[in-house]
Structures are given as structure tokens and as C-alpha cells.
Design a protein around this nucleic acid. Structure first.
Lengths: 213, 213, 213, 213
DNA sequence: TATGAATGAGAGTTCATTCAT
DNA sequence: GATGAATGAACTCTCATTCAT
């Protein structure tokens, strides 16, 4: 009933705290994210989530209400998880340049630190955000958080002299995020013309030109 | 029946003379692109395309077969149209740097030269390409064409001395395409944090760092 | 909603007590048999069964799945009902010759003991059995049961001396079944050249030649 | 375009006479019979007949009109062909008993003299005849011809003393036809319990009891 | 709180048929 | 006489959702 979703993430660790139902809810959302990542949000039906999570359809509706509500809940869950993940990943890195690289690598799924289906979920969210105001607000808010994370790192580096003095943290954060989003594409499409190693190297190169003295 | 699709694009340029059915087919595809751009490919029903184009549902099926085939035909149509469009737009620009800027601005929809819904259609295509081999092949092939276009421009600029001598056309093309794809996101989401003018400026800035001496 | 189907058969005998859904399911099947008998299986639409039974189309699909599954369920229901019917009809007949006559008369619809549309349903089943392995298996299994029923009766008659000593139960069962199937045709077609009474008499005559001393 | 249908029958021999279109018409009908035999009349679409015959759909409609008209034409064609076939097959048999056996074996498809799909087409015709007056008239008329054929043979045998003197030609013809129709069933269903050889033997046995002294 | 039963809305698809050439 | 283009009608099936327990 509650196997861990396909890869990586445990079946919702939150051992401590959490009312029983809260735990199950999270468990379902983790599964839902996998389904959305694999089939796309539009093609994600209650039946799919029910099957992978083992929770009956009507119970899903009892928990989340609408189909769209379920989707939104799953996206919120993933967004928070990704952000928490990247923060944890860079937490113990002292060097701003190291942190910048790590943070940018995270989402696109380089190496093992990646959140499963993170990029796919973002693409889904973007699509819905183009058409639904609620989704749009959600996505924009999250984008802001990512920019803040990067801008903060840039500011640190500038202050410490690790980065160029004329680097504007806000500007560079926007640019870095753009490159990250753009370089993720060939990776998820497994474009043979841009294998993951090359993609990472191209990404780091752009970041270096933007930041390093 | 053959009104121009909702916005911008003319009622289909069409060869000339035009074989009866060929003309109508293209007309339908232009309309379909609009619908896909507005509602998303998954949400695009025969009924929608029928309503917008004035062509009966069964006639659409007679023309294109499957719903998915219709979608694919529309995407192919748009991909070709965009590529033709950008080629035409840069054709009479002599300066490589001018051409680079123009080409990169084109897709994301800056100014008036943009193809309508071009970016939205690409996002749709990416999503399908992640899951369907046929779409994947199509998208990768088109990506390659874009890279070639940019790489050619870079090579010209290097040869003419307008660009830095150490700029590797292939590498820069990949990077430029990434930035273009990534900077398009806040634009279509109309992110107030990254208004179009700023986006353009940020994009040009990255290109400059990659290319200019 | 649960009127007895158009003709003859009671509003479903049903176990007794009856689990809610079981009762309704059987009720629907009885109605479906009538529709199939009247229109033919190929021409039997969900809409027809829905109209006759008063059960919404989507509920029919919820119960039975496919259209073909509904058809198959109806046939299984009818096959069992007919077999039960003929067994009950001959149960209290002591004389093998009486039993033989009764059993053979049953299916083709002589007199009042007939199961409604039994013969039509068999013809439908034969058609599908020619092309679908699942139907074929079902029909062959049922044919075997009928043969066994007849062969048992023949064996009884031979043992009791009522039938010719040299009558091979298995052989005669096959022959009797063939005559039964064949004589049913003019009856359902209402061939004026072979009115029911004549048909019965011709059938009994053949059986007599096969069995009586 | 006009390959011979799957088995046996030539692509309509009628070399001599026949206006061009008459020949093509017959050719189409022979193909249609094959389709009907293989898929069943209800499942026979214009597209199928068009494909096997190579004649465009609209031409089929031009020739035959309705779908049902095409079906009926095909059945008429087959019915005549079968009757002609059996007449030819027994024409040069002097012994009434030989003729009886031959005629009865013909339809059910024993040996090589069978008309392809003859039995299947009859079953189809029976089904339609149950519901459509026009088909019913057609089928009854043909049944009458078959009965006449058999009755004539019986009468010959009685007259010549080959058959029992008390055999009533009309009665026996009806009975024989019933056994033929009934014994055909396990054959077309390929019932392992009644292999063709056994079926023929059982059939002949019944005929013998009805006719031989 | 949680879940099975039931049902309406909507979509794709097939296919005969009509019309113009 | 023959045929391709075009289209409406009908049907199956999927799926979210409501209701009762």
C-alpha cells in the first residue's frame, strides 16, 4: 500500500509529530508526484494515483477534493520538498562558488542529489500557470524563492570577494535561473547532442562568466 | 470559415494558387496552433479546433486521422513556420551580432516579430517528447536546426572578427539556446519580477559575455 | 425500472433474500437476453438494454465492463437458465422416453415450457463462437452439457429396456441434438411449410427411430 | 484488384456473355461472400468489401445501393451458387442413395465439394430472416428449393425400390434437411467431440434409418 | 472517517451516405 | 458510368463526481 515511490525519496519520513492522517496524506502526495512526473498532469487521473498509492479513489477525493486540488497539492508538496532539498544540500558549503554550482545543479537532476521528476513537475506547473491564476501565483512565488536563494549566494560571494565586485545579485540570479531552466531541457529529453556532462559543463561555464573575476 | 486565427498570424500565407485541400489543411493547422497555445495540447479537443476553424469534427478526422496526429501536424506546421520566420527575419541582417540578437529574441516573443504562441507550443512539444518517441525525434531534430542556425551565425562572427576568436560556435549555440529557453519562462508567465524589457536586456547581456571580445 | 422483460419470463427468479446488486444484475441480464433475442447480438447497443431495463448506460458499463462482456454475461445467464429449466422440466418424469421428448422439445420452443428466445440466443452464440475463441469455449462446454443430459437419458432407457439395446448413448445424443438444432430453424422462421406441430412430430419420429425398439 | 476470393471458387468464371459491368458485379459479390463468411454480415462494412475486391467504396454503393442491399445481393448470389453447385454435384449420380448422401454432405462442407463459407452464410441469412420480411421470404424460398431437391430424390428412390416403400418424400426431406442443418454446427465450430468424419457417419446413419429398407 | 455504488457529461472514432466532379 | 471529398449520426468508453452507508 505504501511502497516508496519509484526512486529515491523515502515514503515520507516525518516519523515524529504528524497526526496519522497527515502522514498518509504526504505519502499519497509523494506517489502522486511520481505519477505526474511520469504521465503528465493532464493525464494523471484519480485512478492512477489510487493504484500506485493503494488508496481508494473516493478516499483521495475525501482527502483532496477536486482532481485539480490534488494536482495542486502535489505540486506544492514537490515545490517545498525541492526547495528544502536544495537548501539542505548547500547548507554546509562555505564557499559561495561551491554553493552556486550545487544549487544550480540540483533541479536539473545532475548526479544523485536530484529530486525525482523535479524538472518534469516544473514543466507541468509552468503549463498550468500560463492559464490558471492560482497556479500562476504559486509558481511565481516559488520562482521568487529560488531567485532569493541564488541572489543571497551571489551577494555573499560579492561581499567575500569570491565573485566579481560588479555582479548585481538580483540580475545574476535571474540570469542563472534562466540558464538552469534552459539547460535542463536537453537533459530530460536525453538529447544526444547535449549529454548531461556537457550540459553541466556548459552551465558552469556560463555561471563562471557571470560571476568569477 | 477561414477567418484568420484569433491573433496576429495572417490567414495562412500558402503557396500560391493552392490545391484546394492543401490550402484548407494549412488553414486548419494555423487555427489548431492557436487553440493549442491557448488551452494546451492535452486540453485541445477536436471540438475546439472545429469551432475555431469552422471545419466539422469528422472532416478534421478525415484530414488528420487521430487527435494525436492532428496535434503532431500542428506542431510540425508551427515548427516549420517559426524556423522559416526567424530565417526570414535575420536574412537581411549583415552584422552577426545583430543577427544573433534578432534570432534569439524571436522565439520568446519579444516585440512584434514573434510567432504567436511559439513558446507555448514548444513547451507542449517538450512535454510530449518526454513520453513519446515520435515527438521526441521531432523535437530533437528541430532543436538541431536551431542550434545549427545559431552556430552558423557564431561562426560567421568569429570569422569576421566581430566575435571573440576563442568562441566555439557549437558550444555557444548550445548555451545561447539554453538562455533563450530559460528567459522565455518569466515572459510567458508574465512574471512582474522579470518584465519583458528586463528579460531582453538580461538575455543580450549573457550573449554579449559569451561572444563579444 | 424492474419490469419483467417483454415477454414470458418472470421478473427473475433470484436466489432469495438477494444481495442488492446481485439481484439487479440478474434483472438486467434477463432484459438483455430479450433484446439480444429480438435484435440480434450485433445490433444490441448499450442504449437498447438501458432503455428496456431502465438502468443507465454507464451503470451497465459499471456492471459488465465491455459491450462484449455484457453480451457474454447475458449468454451465460441464458445458457444456465435454459439448462436449469430443462433439468427442472424433466426432473419428475420417470419414463426415459417421456424425458427424451420433453428435453428435446424444450429448446426449440414448443408449447409453453420453452425458454423465451432460447433458440435465437443460441444462434447468436454460434455466430460469435465461429470467430471468438472465448465464445467458442463457452458454447462447446454448454453443448457438452446438453449431450451429457441426453446421453444420460438414453443410457437410462437402454438399461431399463425402454430403448433399443443397441443404442449407443453418446452417438444418439449427438444425433438427437443435431435434429433438435435443425428442426428449430423452420420454427423460428415460422416457415409455413413446417408448422410447429409438424416439426414436433417430425422430431419425435426421428427420435423414435433412433431409440425405440 | 480481382484476385480470387480466399478459397476454391474462381474469380467468377462467366467468361462468355455478360456485359462488362455484370462480370465485375459478380466478382465483387464473390468477394463479399468471403467477407461475410469471415466476419459476419453485421460486421461487414463497405470498407472491407472494398479492400478485398479492390473496388472503391463509392463504386460499391453505385453498384448496389445500400449496405443492406449489397448484403442481400451477396446472399442471393451465394444461395444460387450453392444450389447450382449441389445440382451439378448430383447430376451424374444414378443411384438415389448416392445422390442423397452427396447432396446432404454438400452444404455442411464435407470434403472438397463444399462451397466456401456456405454454412456461415446460411447462418447469417437465418439471423436476418428472423427480423426482416424480405430476407425471410428469400430464405424460405430457398429452403423450399432444397426440400424439393431432396424430396425428388427420395421419390425416385421409393419408385425404384431403393428406399423403403413407406417413406414419405416430403416428410423425409424435412427431416433430412433438419439433420443436415443440425450436424453442420459442430463442424463449423470444430467441436472436438464431433469431428467431421464422425459427423458424416452420424448423418448418414440417420438418413439410412429414414430411408433404407 | 473512509469507502463502494452509481451515474452524467463529454470525447474519440467508425461508418454509411451525400455531393460534386 | 465511376469515384474522391466531405460530413452527420450513432456508439462505446473513460472519468470525475455524487450519494449513501
Amino acid at each position: 500500500m505504501s511502497d516508496s515511490p519509484a526512486s529515491a525519496l523515502p515514503p515520507a519520513p516525518l516519523r515524529r509529530g504528524g497526526r496519522r492522517s497527515g502522514r498518509k496524506r504526504e505519502d499519497v502526495l509523494a506517489h502522486a508526484c511520481v505519477v505526474i512526473g511520469e504521465r503528465g498532469a493532464d493525464a494523471t487521473r484519480f485512478a492512477d494515483v489510487s493504484e500506485v498509492s493503494g488508496v481508494p479513489i473516493s478516499t483521495l477525493q475525501y482527502y483532496f477534493g477536486n482532481r485539480e486540488d490534488l494536482l495542486m497539492a502535489a505540486f506544492r508538496y514537490a515545490a517545498k520538498r525541492d526547495l528544502d532539498g536544495v537548501r539542505a544540500a548547500v547548507a554546509d558549503l562555505a564557499d559561495p562558488w561551491e554553493r552556486m554550482q550545487k544549487a544550480c545543479s540540483f533541479v536539473v537532476g545532475f548526479a544523485d542529489e536530484a529530486a525525482p521528476y523535479a524538472w518534469q513537475l516544473w514543466v507541468e506547473a509552468w503549463r498550468w500557470a500560463q492559464r490558471d491564476p492560482e497556479w500562476r501565483a504559486e509558481v511565481l512565488a516559488d520562482n521568487a524563492k529560488w531567485r532569493a536563494l541564488l541572489a543571497g549566494t551571489v551577494a555573499d560571494g560579492v561581499a567575500s570577494g569570491r565573485f566579481r565586485a560588479d555582479a548585481d545579485p538580483e540580475r545574476v540570479a535571474r540570469q542563472a535561473l534562466a540558464v538552469v531552466d534552459g539547460i535542463g531541457l536537453p537533459i530530460v529529453l536525453e538529447d544526444p547532442a547535449v549529454p548531461p556532462e556537457m550540459a553541466r559543463e556548459l552551465l558552469i561555464d556560463v555561471l563562471a562568466r557571470l560571476l568569477l573575476p
